[in-house]
Simulated scan of single mutants.
Amino acid sequence: MEKQIGVAWERPHPGPFAWGMIEKKDGEFDFSQADRYVKAAQDNGVLLLGTIWPFADWDQAKCRQASACEVGPADTFYNSEIPNSRCKPCDMDKYSAFLRALAERYDGDGVDDMPGLVLPVRYWEVLNEPEMQSGELTFFKGTASDYLEVLKASSKAIKEACPECKIVQAGAAGTEQYMLDYWAGQLDAGAADYFDIANIHYINNGDLASLNVKPFKALFTERGISRPIWVTEAEYGEASTDAAVKSSTEGALSAGASKVFFTRFAVGIRGPPTPGKFSSVYLELADMGCNKEG
């Protein structure tokens, strides 16, 4: 469907890049599932933003009771591609080794690349919405300091293997005050030193006119920090219209976003997309360059 619309980028969610999916046992790498995803994307001419999940069950239990890090059955992503145990890595050295191997396999430099690699993966998002910690949705069971530690280690390891790779901050969940406070604290602690691209979400809540870009960008402007901003989740409610999708996307770009990722392509419909079915507004946005590389 992405090829029909003219989409140039995809952000698989959760995606195939969880540490424990690739390194199921300590020191044993199996990239087969990730390779299939990367190959399917390149067969359709689609570039990937890969989300890194720094969790492997064999590591999580090394330094703590595993149960302290587990999410419950009510969690939206329980028993999914993301391991249920979601604290920061116990062994940062082994986590870093995994990241170097991951970046090297998909960077397209001709050294230890995936066989047949044509479209490299050079943009990596470190986790997702770490400020979201509820019974229904917890992507990271850790403090703000824990996330900063993971971000710093991830940026260092990836850029060691792939200096041209770009690090994308974990998507900010929105612009509720506690979310803005979380990311203000991260910026004050120096997080911007470890990512190249800022990242905000609009999940049918907040500033529709700019897809939350305007209030999120203000956090950076107030601190004299300049980063490109991507909206990596734009999701509309069932009452939305083609006109609202178009105007809000234009508003996000005008407010400073350089890229917008949509969670589905049928306006007014919730749930998983239906292959081959999409609203015509997304063809217009593709023609405007909203979904193109760059």
Rank of each mutant, 00 (worst) to 15 (best):
Glu149Asp: 15
Leu151Met: 07
Ala153Gly: 13
Ser155Leu: 07
Lys159Phe: 12
Ala161Val: 11
Pro163Asn: 14
Glu164Met: 14
Lys166Leu: 14
Val168Ala: 08
Ala173Tyr: 06
Gly174Tyr: 02
Thr175Met: 14
Glu176Met: 13
Gln177Asp: 10
Ala184Asn: 14
Gly185Thr: 00
Gly185Ile: 01
Gln186Glu: 10
Gly190Leu: 08
Ala192Asn: 08
Asp193Phe: 11
Asp193Tyr: 14
Phe195Thr: 02
Asp196Ile: 07
Ile203Trp: 15
Ile203Asp: 15
Asn204Lys: 13
Asn205Glu: 15
Asn205Ser: 15
Leu208Lys: 12
Ala209Thr: 06
Ser210Tyr: 08
Pro215Asn: 06
Phe216Ser: 02
Phe216Trp: 03
Phe216Arg: 00
Phe216Asp: 01
Lys217Leu: 09
Lys217Phe: 06
Phe220Ser: 07
Phe220Met: 11
Glu222Ile: 14
Ile225Lys: 09
Ile225Met: 11
Pro228Cys: 08
Pro228Met: 03
Thr232Val: 05
Glu233Asp: 05
Ala239Arg: 13
Asp242Trp: 02
Val245Ala: 01
Ser247Pro: 02
Glu250Asn: 07
Glu250Ile: 13
Gly251Pro: 02
Ala252Pro: 04
Ala252Leu: 02
Ser254Glu: 13
Ala255Phe: 01
Val260Asp: 01
Phe261Asp: 00
Phe261Gln: 01
Phe262Pro: 06
Phe265Thr: 02
Gly268Asp: 02
Ile269Thr: 13
Ile269Lys: 15
Pro273Gln: 15
Pro275Val: 11
Phe278His: 06
Ser280Ala: 10
Val281Gln: 03
Tyr282Thr: 01
